[in-house]
Amino acid sequence: MTIIVAILQAVLLVTLAPLFSGITRKIRAKMHSRKGTSIMQDYYDLAKLWRRCEVKEGGSGIISRLTPPIFLGSFILVAAGLPLVMQACPVPFLGDIITVLYLMALPRFMFALGSIDSAGSYTAIGGVRELLVGVLVEPSLILVLFVAAIAAGSTNLGIMANAVGTLQAYPFVAIVVAGVACAMACYIEMGKLPFDLAEAEQEIQEGPLAAYSGPSLAMIKLGVSVKQLVVASLFVAIFLPFGAATTAAPLDLLVGLVSFLFKLLIVMLIASVIENSVMRARYKYLGRYTWFVVGIASLSLVFLVIGI
């Protein structure tokens, strides 16, 4: 039964990802005082790219061909395992934080590897930057999830969500502070401005994306949209599980689904407003922002240890 939920929610996230990025684009246009494209535009773009023929760079190998499907696939797998509409993981072995973190590290690894597998000098710079973001952000994310796991007594995301949702997670302050740190880490992880370093159009001409075309580019683009939703969902699932179904009853699931989409929409709206009111961070100074996040994450650990 729950395996169906898992498949359905993965399909749901993939089909909705272009819609969400379309909405983001619309908000951006409004903030630019432009009319903007239709919110369905990303579907059209993907469809068009899918029909185009693939152009491969001379000298590029199997790696750059494997990167797009692995990039997209990993995030779909993560999406299947997260406790989104239920306060429990539909597939327990996919819902462990260790699994989730590694599944999120895999596409980054492939992305960076793919960027070296290209003759372009900007793509390599983009790959290096992507790794830099990973190195700087992942520790805080791991720390925060560790705090939540201790507080809930399990590394399973479903049990963590349930503990937070029923307000049984202890200590309370530590969880709230961890939630704040997690929100910030997730925002950086989403790769939106001011942290879209790996694809910075004006600086390095979209970095590794420049090496892909046709269906590969479509997969990467879809992958990036899905990634943003998955990262936002990860935060929502653990720290805002309110409204998610506690049982597998159809009505509960429906309520869970509606509340999940609502929460996700709010998070994405806030993210896109932030995105359009800042300039891109200088990649040199990225460390300053992430130190701040590490600080808050450590604070939550302190609160956990002293038990408030």
Partner: peptide, 12 residues
């Protein structure tokens, strides 16, 4: 604005 990645300012 555009070069700094601040397209909102650019458009305005």
């Amino acid at each position: 604005c555009h070069y700094c990645g601040f397209d909102t300012g650019f458009q305005h």
